[in-house]
Simulated assay, not measured.
Amino acid sequence: VDPIQGGAGTSINMNANEVIANRAIEILGGKLGDYSLISPNSHVNMSQSTNDSFPTALRIAILSKAGNLLQATEEVEKELRLKSVEFDDVLKMGRSHLQDAVPVRMGQEFGAYADAVTRSIQRLRQACKGLLAVNMGATAIGTSLNADFTYVDQVIRKLREISGIDLRLADNLVDATQNTDTYVELSSSMKNLATVLSKIANDLRLLASGPYCGLQEINLPQMQPGSSIMPGKVNPVIPEVVNQVSFQVMGNDLVVTLASEAGQFELNVMEPVIAFNLLHSINILTNVQHIFAERCIRGITANREHCRKMVESSVSIVTALNPHLGYEMSCAIAIEAMQQGSKVRNIVLEKQLMSEEELDKVLDIYEITKMGIAGKEFLAKPNEKI
């Protein structure tokens, strides 16, 4: 049965009912297909409808797979967190608009990546909570026509026992049968995660660019030869596949959004395509994150000396002089440094604007990466400025 189908999942439901009916007939010693003994509709489908069994089955399927997705995401978070500690002593140039900004520690960059993934985990967990409410017993449109109250109570309890998932009956079965916003919430949380992962992958590709004519601030584990024509070339294939999976998840999210919006009145008939795309996103996000954590992030190394050399030669450290010399003077120093190819420190000393001792503190790269004003103790007091 094709997963994308009309009928709101009726084909899948009836196929399952027929398989169950024939298996029951077989156990009872009857002839396969003899529905006078066990009927797919009268017996197997008793107190049920596709419109409650299909979405309930989908929720169970999603929640069964969600554990693996969360585990893979936590694995990425853990590896990023470990790198943030390992690289905390790596001083480098931070960038905005792809231009030199101010110094930053590489550990701070990886810590930011980890925090973004942490928030994605929180969103996923919250979205999964909304899927615990099922509409089993709602039958056709949520009014529970032909569903005995005892059945509804028992089926939820049995599903909890079988699945190990803390399912509960939705408070409003009419609402739960026609609205699919909980699917959109989950899809959105996966899109958000994909956006975070893709951004991290973009950064890693740029930071590892080179090896001689790029940034080359980090080294990514080498996975395979990068070219069929260029000898020795190695490409960042793991971040590239993370990008591509992220694009697919974003596309899947659009389908889920459109399908959810396309419901009419008491039923959303587009649930099959919602199911297909949600499960696809869960599967590929789970797989790619395992690979990302194990075969990429874990093996990243930093080119410490290269990073330090670049940040020390950058004019952008002049920003730390703003509180001491003012923006206008600092700007003039920056322009002169770029025009002459000189270091900011040397120009300040030549102009006798600050002492060696003061510059040792104010232009200390590690201090610049901390909150506050580097060399605050050297700032002139209000009465000294007068």
Rank of each mutant, 00 (worst) to 15 (best):
T10L: 15
S11W: 08
I12R: 04
E18S: 04
I27R: 13
L28A: 15
L28H: 12
G33F: 07
G33S: 09
D34H: 05
L37I: 12
I38G: 08
N41V: 07
N41Q: 11
S42L: 13
H43F: 02
V44M: 05
S47P: 02
S49L: 05
S49M: 04
T50Y: 02
P55C: 08
L58E: 13
K65A: 14
A66V: 12
L69F: 01
L70G: 14
T73I: 11
T73H: 07
E75N: 14
V76D: 10
K83A: 05
M93T: 08
G94P: 09
S96W: 09
D100H: 11
D100E: 10
M106L: 15
M106V: 05
M106I: 02
E109P: 00
A112F: 08
A112L: 05
T118G: 11
S120P: 14
R123M: 14
L124N: 02
C128A: 02
V134C: 00
N135K: 12
A138R: 04
G142P: 00
T143S: 01
N146E: 00
T150L: 02
Y151F: 12
I156G: 14
K158P: 04
L159P: 14
R160D: 15
G164V: 02
I165P: 12
L167T: 13
A176W: 03
A176K: 03
T177D: 01
T182V: 15
S187W: 15
S189A: 15
S189P: 15
K191I: 09
N192A: 12
A194Y: 13
K199G: 10
L204V: 12
L204N: 05
L207A: 00
P211S: 00
G214L: 03
I218G: 07
N219P: 08
P221Q: 11
I229C: 09
I229A: 14
G232S: 10
V234C: 10
V237K: 14
P239I: 05
M250W: 00
G251M: 05
V255A: 09
G263V: 06
V273Q: 07
F276T: 13
F276R: 09
H280R: 11
I282S: 01
N283G: 06
T286C: 06
T286Y: 01
H290D: 12
F292N: 05
E294T: 13
I297E: 13
G299T: 09
A302W: 00
E305S: 15
V311D: 12
E312F: 03
S316H: 00
I317G: 04
A320Y: 01
A320D: 04
L321M: 06
N322E: 01
G326P: 06
Y327K: 01
E328D: 12
M329L: 01
C331K: 00
A332V: 04
I333V: 10
A337V: 02
G341N: 06
N346Q: 14
N346L: 08
I347Q: 03
K351H: 07
Q352S: 15
Q352A: 15
M354P: 12
S355N: 10
E356S: 11
E356N: 13
E356C: 05
V362N: 11
D364H: 02
Y366P: 00
E367T: 02
E367W: 03
T369N: 07
I373F: 10
A380Y: 04
P382F: 10
I386F: 08
